[in-house]
Design a protein around this nucleic acid. Structure first.
Lengths: 209, 209
DNA sequence: AAACTAGCCTACCATATGGTAGACAGGAGT
DNA sequence: ACTCCTGTCTACCATATGGTAGGCTAGTTT
């Protein structure tokens, strides 16, 4: 009997289970047996859908990048920021909010990012490769905003990596937070979100009269 | 015959090997056999010094926290920043520089931090626990500086975690950097350091006339 | 000289792991 | 009716892993 009542196609359910487990316990520490168990099938059925554990990981990277891209693209096209005077800054704010939204709704996706970058190639190269279109757009956008003088000039590549590290750290270092005496909760996630935004604002935004 | 010509006591050499391997390949992916091999002894001798793999990890956490604390404390006591007008800011700069110095000289230490926080309790709780004295000092220092009005007000706990995430990310996400087209090198590390400092400066420093 | 200890080793074990081989059930195509 | 294909399973395997048991040696203690 399946652990979860889930009527999706088997391969998607396997990816669901693997995502959760890889993000939570790590790739090496997750056995195919365990994945099978949470999905409600046998290890061999997992191997039927994905010829090897690494193939499974790669497929998971692909699907996760698609999911994330979708969430971010959407927030780029239709920024949900409140009333505003500065379109450029709002896009940044909107993307950061989107990341926080994802990490509230699907924390495993963010956890997987960390795990992938830890595992190194070939998974990490595939990750960045698949993210490339989005990255390129982000570079162009940041360059444009700096040219327009709406945000302070930093190297886009650095800015992205730094912000990425910071945001992902803030939402995924829950162990450290807990150990620092803050009980992870919805409330504290919202707090951290506004802290991050305020920090970024003071780092990036150029105040005009 | 030992792999490295190292005449330190055996237990220290084991910790050295484990540090490198854990940081590089991860805890689960590192076998006791492999540790023994790089140290030049058998797995059973490893177990002679550390009764279990987890004991080894704990001992490694302890030693690494000591090493890191030493490097940071030193930079706090004797800031190496250039001529300056603002002691508070210079301490921050000095600490960030110290972290970069450590990550140039002993990148495994930073890598281990990530690995530990990924592994979760009990390793991560021990890590933070052992870091607590330093953390407390940092809180107090940041509070003081904010009161004095030298840096912008943010919640210290947030500020520390955010800066930690950013700095550690910048020095340890070399996979992502590489995939983003930047070849990790001494030169680029220095570049990233100055980028980070500039970013922090614009985020924190309050310019006065 | 006898006893003990430290440090290392070989031998071994139970378990877990990724993966292969192949069987069986049931629906679809002919 | 027969074949084929899809999806699942059981059985099995080679290998690796953390850990135990116990032995050997050289030096120190008594």
């Amino acid at each position: 009997m399946p652990t979860s009542v889930n009527s999706n196609p088997t391969d998607q359910r396997i990816l669901d289970g693997a995502l959760e487990l890889f993000a939570d316990r790590g790739f090496e520490a997750t056995s195919l047996d365990l994945i099978g168990k949470v999905v409600g099938i046998s290890k061999q059925s997992v191997l039927y859908w994905f010829p090897s554990k690494e193939d499974l990981l790669m497929a998971l990277v692909d699907r996760s990048v698609d999911d994330l891209s979708l969430a971010l693209e959407d927030s780029l096209e239709n920024p949900r920021s409140p009333s505003g005077r500065d379109q450029g800054w709002f896009k940044i704010e909107s993307v950061v909010k989107a990341v926080f939204r994802v990490s509230a709704k699907r924390p495993e996706l963010i956890g997987l990012l960390r795990e992938i970058s830890r595992l190194g190639p070939p998974a990490s190269s595939r990750l960045v490769e698949r993210f490339d279109p989005l990255l390129t757009r982000a570079y162009a956008f940041l360059d444009g905003e700096m040219d327009r003088g709406t945000i302070k000039r930093h190297e886009p590549k650095f800015l992205l990596l730094a912000t990425y590290s910071m945001v992902v750290g803030m939402v995924s270092e829950i162990e450290l937070l807990r150990a620092m005496g803050e009980e992870p909760s919805m409330r504290s996630l919202v707090k951290r979100r506004s802290d991050v935004l305020e920090f970024l604002r003071s780092a990036l935004l150029i105040e005009r009269d």
